Amino acid sequence: MEPRISIVTLGVSDLARSRAFYEQLGWQASAASNEHVTFFQAGGIALALYSRKALAEDAKLPDGECAFGGITLAYNVRDKAEVAAVLAEAETAGGRILKPAQDVFWGGHSGYFADPDGHPWEVAWNPFFTLNERGNLILP
């Protein structure tokens, strides 16, 4: 298996609401989207929005709400001040702030928001990582 991720799919309760949230944050839906699924290009991978119930059925998993699903998504920024700005943008779009921007133990600055379905996103400035001109993370 080659080490890569092609698509991250988020199970959502209301596809139109979730699509509108991400579009308000500046994401552009792909022409491959339809009434059942929305795709967004996210650097070298895609983010997909799909019915939570249908996603659970497809994966042969029970659909149950839980406080934390054991995964977060991360959005890295180029400078410390951008963390608070992105969190504010997410809140304005209808997201919920889980943790405000703050210095963190590992030497960076981060905060968290949840999208309308509660999927947690970390917004982080990491002084040890670099973002290229396209915003893709370059690990040391």
Score class of each variant (00 low, 15 high):
Leu49Cys: 06
His109Val: 01
Arg4Cys: 08
Ala29Asp: 09
Gly108Cys: 09
Ala114Tyr: 00
Gly11Val: 08
Arg78Ala: 08
Asp14Phe: 07
Leu15Ser: 10
Gly26Ala: 07
Phe40Asp: 07
Val83Glu: 01
Asn34Pro: 05
Leu47Ile: 14
Glu35Asn: 13
Asp63Gly: 04
Ser33Asp: 13
Ala20Asn: 08
Leu49Val: 04
Ile7Asp: 03
Ala88Glu: 08
Ser13Lys: 15
Tyr75Asn: 15
Gly44Thr: 11
Phe105Met: 12
Ala16Gln: 15
Pro120Lys: 13
Gln24Met: 07
Gln28Gly: 08
Gly94Ile: 02
Phe105Tyr: 08
Asp63Pro: 06
Ala42Lys: 03
Ala90Leu: 06
Phe129Gly: 00
Ser6His: 10
Ala32Met: 02
Gly118Gln: 06
Gly64Tyr: 11
Ser13Trp: 08
Ser13Leu: 13
Asp103Asn: 14
Trp121Met: 00
Val77Ser: 00
Gly11Leu: 00
Val123Lys: 01
Gly69Thr: 11
Asn126Ser: 11
Arg4Ala: 09
Ala90Asp: 00
Gly107Asn: 05
Glu89Met: 14
Lys80Tyr: 00
Glu57Leu: 07
Asp58His: 13
Ala29Asn: 05
Arg19Cys: 11
Phe21Thr: 02
Leu49Lys: 09
Glu82Tyr: 01
Lys80Leu: 03
Ala59Gly: 04
Val8Ile: 14
Asp103Ala: 15
Asp115Phe: 06
Lys60Val: 14
Ala46Asn: 11
Gln41Pro: 10
Glu133Tyr: 05
Glu65Asp: 14
Ala59Phe: 12
Ala67Pro: 08
Gly43Met: 06
Asn76Ser: 10
Gly111Leu: 03
Cys66Ile: 13
Gly69Leu: 07
Asn34His: 09
Glu23Pro: 00
Ala74Ile: 12
Pro100Lys: 01
Lys80Ser: 03
Arg52Phe: 05
Ile45Phe: 11
His36Ile: 00
Ala46Thr: 12
Trp121Asp: 02
Ala54Asn: 10
Val77Arg: 03
Ala29Thr: 06
Ala74Met: 12
Ser6Ala: 14
Gly11Asn: 08
Leu87Phe: 05
Asp117Met: 02
Tyr22Glu: 02
Thr72Gln: 05
Pro100Gln: 08
Thr72Lys: 00
Ala88His: 01
Pro127Ile: 02
Phe40Arg: 02
Tyr75His: 15
Ser110Leu: 13
Tyr75Ser: 14
Leu25Ala: 07
Val12Ile: 09
Ala114Leu: 02
Val123Ile: 11
Arg96Ser: 11
Leu15Asn: 04
Asp63Arg: 02
Leu61Ile: 14
Leu47Gln: 06
Leu10Val: 13
Asp115Asn: 08
Ala84Trp: 01
Phe21Glu: 03
Phe68Cys: 09
Gly108Met: 05
His36Lys: 11
Trp27Met: 15
Phe128Lys: 12
Gly44Arg: 12
Ala31Trp: 12
Trp121Gly: 00
Ala56Cys: 12
Glu23Asn: 02
Val83His: 05
Ser18Gln: 15
Ala29Pro: 01
Asn34Asp: 15
Phe105Trp: 11
Gly64Thr: 13
Val8Phe: 10
Asp117Cys: 08
Asp103Lys: 05
Ala88Arg: 07
Asn34Thr: 10
Gln102Met: 05
Gly118Ser: 10
Leu98Gly: 11
Ala114His: 04
Ile71Glu: 03
Gly11Trp: 03
